[in-house]
């Protein structure tokens, strides 16, 4: 079968199946199980309404349980076991201990912390700046869509684009990477292998994620900025505040809850960062991060135990931020 037809068929069956499930189950509830007729009509309506939400939630709950909850427990179980021949043997925290002795693990931890500090801060700051500056421009909306555009590019796609920007050709040849082209033209030095300069190459990788996430931050923060009551700004103008004072003392504090939500949301993305590192350096030249480290152990070295232990560490780091994020998002909605 032609793959295109296959895809269309999959979509049709998937979506159609869902619609059919909701329709049929609802029909069964109303017509067969608790029909709103007969001597118990009122009681039946109440009972049907009590069951209905669960009926509709059921598919989502099963999917979440199967693909999210079960893997968490299975990974935890795997992280406590070791392959001995074809069987699993319980080894306690041995996998974790082994991981702690590896230099690559600590390098990943350090890099993750770097990512954690730099990317959310830069993305939020650039997003806020863009939101504020584009708000009063005639062509602000065009600028916004340009800044938002990278959000639509996959991490791997973005990595390929930036890999070309950082590209390096031997000295004397035409440089196709724009960074080297500019660098050579400005300084006259030999072209640099940007992605192979330890420590700094981390920052070059982070630029990719900042480039992508700044658009997200900008959209959310722009909406928040517009939600600030105009009168408080006018009152500040009358109080004699200048543009910077209005921005930092009146506007930013009022959207602080949104800034926190944006910041933590990006933080969670950062903790899971994988594709960019995989596609650009694959963790070489001291750019390893936890998710890529886990992938290395799991699918390249086939050390399922240590790989699972790394996965657990990532989850351990993400969970508190996630809880805080949800808490803040809810608080803001109230």
């Amino acid at each position: 079968m032609n793959p295109a037809i296959q895809a269309v068929l999959t979509v049709a069956i998937g979506v159609g199946g869902c619609v059919l499930y909701f329709w049929l189950s609802n029909l069964f509830l109303d017509k067969v199980l608790y029909p709103p007729r007969g001597p118990n009509a009122g009681r039946n309506i109440n009972r049907a309404n009590m069951i209905r939400p669960w009926l509709f939630l059921l598919p989502a709950m099963i999917a979440l349980g199967l693909y999210l909850a079960y893997p968490v427990f299975a990974t935890f179980w795997l992280s406590l076991h070791k392959d001995v021949g074809a069987t699993k043997q319980f080894v306690g925290l041995d996998n974790y201990r082994q991981m702690m002795t590896e230099g690559k693990f600590w390098e990943s931890m350090r890099n993750n912390m770097l990512w954690l500090i730099v990317v959310p801060a830069m993305a939020t700051a650039f997003g806020l700046l863009a939101a504020q500056l584009t708000d009063r421009l005639k062509w602000g909306n065009f600028a916004k869509s340009m800044i938002f555009m990278p959000m639509a590019i996959s991490f791997v796609g973005a990595s390929v684009i930036w890999k070309l920007i950082y590209d390096s050709r031997p000295a004397g040849q035409e440089q196709i990477g724009i960074l080297n082209a500019v660098y050579v033209w400005m300084t006259g030095n030999d072209p640099q292998q940007w992605l192979q300069i330890p420590f700094w190459n981390n920052l070059f990788l982070m630029v990719v994620l900042v480039w992508i996430q700044a658009g997200f931050a900008m959209v959310i923060l722009s909406a928040a900025l517009r939600g600030i009551p105009e009168e408080t700004i006018e009152a500040a103008i009358l109080d004699g505040a200048g543009p910077f004072q209005i921005f930092f003392k009146i506007k930013v504090p009022q959207i602080m809850p949104t800034i926190v939500v944006v910041w933590t949301t990006i933080t969670i993305t950062v903790l899971k960062v994988f594709d960019i590192v995989l596609a650009m350096t694959n963790g070489q030249w001291e750019t390893q991060v936890l998710a890529n480290y886990m992938y290395d152990k799991f699918f390249r070295a086939f050390d399922v135990g240590v790989g699972s232990a790394a996965a657990m560490i990532i989850m351990l780091l993400v969970t508190p931020i996630l809880v805080w994020n949800v808490h803040n998002a809810r608080k803001e909605m109230r």
Binding site: A235, P253, Q254
Partner: peptide
């Protein structure tokens, strides 16, 4: 001059 707004316009933070 000083102005009192209809919505008070207090700085909420």
């Amino acid at each position: 001059i000083a102005m009192v707004f209809q919505s008070y316009a207090l700085y909420p933070h």
